[in-house]
Design a protein around this nucleic acid. Structure first.
Lengths: 155, 155
DNA sequence: AGTGAAACGACCGTAGA
DNA sequence: TCTACGGTCGTTTCACT
């Protein structure tokens, strides 16, 4: 969110390549080439540029539910003092997978992943509310995930 | 979030493999094998199992900022009536990349990705608040992304 | 669940349009 | 920025442990 260079405009071919890698990040360049009508080398060059420029990356994502993390929640946090310091402290907690500084009635939003309710309570009490500068928290326990997209801006 | 089978316990080797693919989703099985002390074929089998079981997937993720989507926000939504119906309607909107049903003072949370403030206003007024059953919304504009993890449960 | 070997296919660098 | 091509390395299948 720091990088504020000119936006990179993707043509339809690059969008198609990203869509292929969205379906399967390990699909071969040759196969992608067939799908988008390009040679293997051309696909490889474009993927390399997209990756090096930071527009796209191919990564492994895991499903917390399958790994026994049955409780997810978003925690809205009000802060006294410097919210960046609190954000850094939150980011150090392994169970916190997402931290963003916001404008609005919360200064910070943090997504947390826990095994069960007891873990969530512990996390909130001992790890999050104990951080210097955390004034108040409000927790939104996840009931059902409806949509989760990783490829913003390509659809 | 529906799948509630027994949690799959990952051993250290599988965690190491996922970590390798987290660093670079296109890293070769041979190279991963060297890093984790396994033959190439063994790595491939494990990746296949992890993928087929839904524990892990390798996908392309894109950076909205780099693509000119400078405004992101989380929208908390209060609903009258059936929140699942509203969630489905939200999920249909391309600019909405994340929708989750929650317990708490919001019934739904939706993350949105926009090019600028005007787009965000339009999105809120014409697309989101116009949905039947949306009673109230509260918007938290993102100022700075501090942490974003894709591999829950492996660290 | 793991290894090893041989055939096959993908990947990479370079050259050229 | 793309295609073409050859050398190298990764992947696949299979037999075996």
């Amino acid at each position: 969110m720091a990088a504020r260079s000119r936006p990179i405009a993707l043509d339809d071919v690059s969008k198609a390549i990203i869509e292929q890698l969205q379906e399967d990040g390990r699909r071969s360049y040759a196969e992608i080439g067939k799908a988008v009508g390009l040679s293997e080398a051309a696909v490889r060059q474009r993927v390399q540029k997209l990756t090096e420029s930071g527009v796209m990356q191919v990564v492994a994502v895991t499903d917390p539910m399958q790994l026994g993390f049955y409780r997810q929640a978003m925690v809205g946090i009000r802060v006294t003092g410097d919210s960046t310091v609190v954000a850094e402290r939150l980011a150090e907690i392994p169970a916190v997978d997402y931290v963003v500084l916001t404008a609005g009635s919360f200064d910070l939003l943090a997504e947390v992943v826990c095994e069960n309710d007891d873990d969530l309570i512990e996390l909130l009490n001992r790890r999050i509310r104990s951080i210097e500068g955390v004034q108040a928290t409000e927790t939104f326990v996840y009931l059902k995930l409806q949509k989760q997209l990783y490829n913003w801006g390509t659809r």
